[in-house]
Design a protein around this nucleic acid. Sequence first.
DNA 1: TTGACATATTCCCATATAGGTATATAATCT
DNA 2: AGATTATATACCTATATGGGAATATGTCAA
Lengths: 113, 113
Amino acid sequence: MARAATTTDAFNAIAEPQRRQILDLLAPGELPVNDLVALVGLGQPQVSKHLKVLREVGLVDVREDGRQRLYRINGRMLKPIHDWVSNYRQTWEERFQALDQVLDELKAQEKRT
Amino acid sequence: MARAATTTDAFNAIAEPQRRQILDLLAPGELPVNDLVALVGLGQPQVSKHLKVLREVGLVDVREDGRQRLYRINGRMLKPIHDWVSNYRQTWEERFQALDQVLDELKAQEKRT
DNA sequence: TTGACATATTCCCATATAGGTATATAATCT
DNA sequence: AGATTATATACCTATATGGGAATATGTCAA
């Protein structure tokens, strides 16, 4: 068996750095394809193909405007990733937990005084 | 160019569902390979190969114990993913959008008065 | 030492990829 | 209609993949 298709889910779609960059560029607001082409260092067909992948997993929506296609982000599909990764937050945030505890104690003390 | 190697970074490594499952199984605590083989529906060589990928991107650590290798999770490498995804949280948290709207209205009203 | 157990490695194969180039489709302008 | 612009699609190629099967490596036990 080969690797799962990039269009399988958001996990596979965002494994490609260029596609993450495209999403980052779309974050401030919708953009036509050619603007993305100018911003990403890639040819127009390549950008269109990345956009197709992002479309198929629902990470972007398109709107037609004359001969342009305005792409906009739809981050809802990132939630599963966020949820999954969040389960491991404590693994890298132990220090923060300790800090939180200290802060809580300080707060409690402050209240008492 | 082909797809980036699975060992390129955590993004690529966790695109594979079986590898996410392995991490989930390791979440409660370290496990030897054979336990993982029993829990995942895969052959031992396959599991070993997935573990190799996870090792190479630093998502798991190994400890030798006799003839067993005890694998343990190291979620630090998930933080970049968490950070990147978190930038899009507002996209799926409607409450924030509603809140933003309220704030905008308040601002507009404030200007008018 | 011989054998059983635990894990890693090698070889095989079908498949999807990312980027490149050329072309198709569609909308707008002259 | 013909030319130009904006985007999508088709085709090509090198490459890494994930699973299967067989085998290698290493450790313990009798």
